[in-house]
Each structure stands twice: as structure tokens, then as C-alpha cells.
Amino acid sequence: MPGTGWTLTLLAPVRPVLEPARPAARLGALLLGGAGLAGMALALRRRGRLRRDLARDAARRQELEEQVSLRTAELRTANARLRAEAVERQRAEATLHGLRDELAQANRRPSSARSPPAWRMRSTSRWPPSAPSPTTR
């Protein structure tokens, strides 16, 4: 109404206008819900795969730790054996050097002062027991 400052608003029923849009809205909601469910299913599947991968990695890591422990124990045993062999070798070398020194000293003595070699000495016992006596050949 011009000049009065009033506005006339006519309200009409909206049901006839919204009724055709209702199936489209339902379909949209259904599609959006389906997409949401598919996203959740994908996320749950990824989470399950991640858990399986983590469990498999933990099992591999544990297996590797056990292998490392076994190998470390083997290496420690081998190292101890090698150390014992080295000590034995050093003893043998010391004995060898001592015998060489004795032999060198014996060779420096005059021949009259030398005692006969041990293999020429007659003995009633045989050593080694299975070997024939040098004098009975």
C-alpha cells in the first residue's frame, strides 16, 4: 500500500512446492550417508591393515632380535675359543723358543760335555708303547 508504509505479505502453502523436492532430498541424504559409510568402512579397513602391518613388523623385529642374540652368543663363544687358542699358541711358542735356546746352548758346548741324545739312550720302558725301540731295529 503505497503511502501507508505498510507491506502486505501473502503466505501461501509450501507443501505443493516442497513435495516434488522431497524425493530428491531423500536421495541426496541417502547418497551422502552412503558416501559417509563408505568413507568410514575405508578408514576402518586401513586401520585394520595398519594394525596387521604393525603386528607383522613387531614379529619381524622380535625375530631379528632373537637372531641377533643367537649370533652374538655364537660370536662370543667363537671369540672365547679363539682367545684360548691364542693363549695356547703363545705357550707353545714360548716352549719352542725355550727348546731352541736349550738346543743352541747344547750345540755350543764342547762335544765331550754333551750327553747323548735322548733317542739313543737305552731304556727298559718303551715310549711311545707302540713304537719299536731304536736299539731293536
Rank of each mutant, 00 (worst) to 15 (best):
A58G: 02
Q90T: 09
R83C: 04
P129A: 09
M1S: 08
R61Y: 03
N107K: 05
D57Q: 05
D57K: 00
E85T: 11
G34D: 15
R91D: 12
A113C: 05
P129G: 07
W6Y: 02
A21G: 11
L18E: 06
T124L: 13
E102S: 10
R60L: 06
G34N: 15
Q105H: 09
G39R: 01
T136V: 09
D101E: 04
A73I: 00
A41V: 09
L30E: 14
A118K: 15
Q90Y: 07
R60Y: 00
R114S: 00
L64N: 06
A84I: 11
R81T: 04
S125V: 13
R26M: 13
R61V: 00
P16Q: 02
A86H: 06
A118E: 10
L54I: 03
L27A: 14
A106F: 07
Q105C: 02
A25L: 13
E65L: 08
L103N: 08
R56A: 05
R52L: 03
P129R: 08
V87N: 15
R26A: 15
R26N: 15
D53F: 10
R51W: 11
P116W: 08
T4M: 01
S69R: 10
W119Q: 15
P16F: 00
M121R: 12
L37W: 11
A12L: 10
D53W: 10
G98D: 00
T135L: 10
A25P: 15
M121V: 13
A104S: 14
W127S: 12
L50N: 12
L99W: 07
L64E: 07
A113H: 07
T77W: 04
S111W: 09
A24I: 09
A43L: 14
V68R: 11
Q90R: 13
L96R: 15
L96T: 12
A55N: 03
L70K: 06
G36P: 09
L54C: 04
R71Y: 02
R71W: 01
H97Q: 12
T9A: 02
N79I: 05
E19H: 02
R52N: 07
P110I: 00
M40R: 12
L99F: 08
P110V: 01
P132V: 05
L8A: 08
L11D: 08
E19V: 04
T77I: 06
T72H: 01
M40D: 14
G39E: 07
P16V: 01
T124V: 12
R22S: 06
N79C: 07
E88I: 09
P110Q: 06
L64K: 02
P16I: 02
R100V: 11
T4E: 05
E74Y: 02
R114E: 03
E102C: 12
R47D: 14
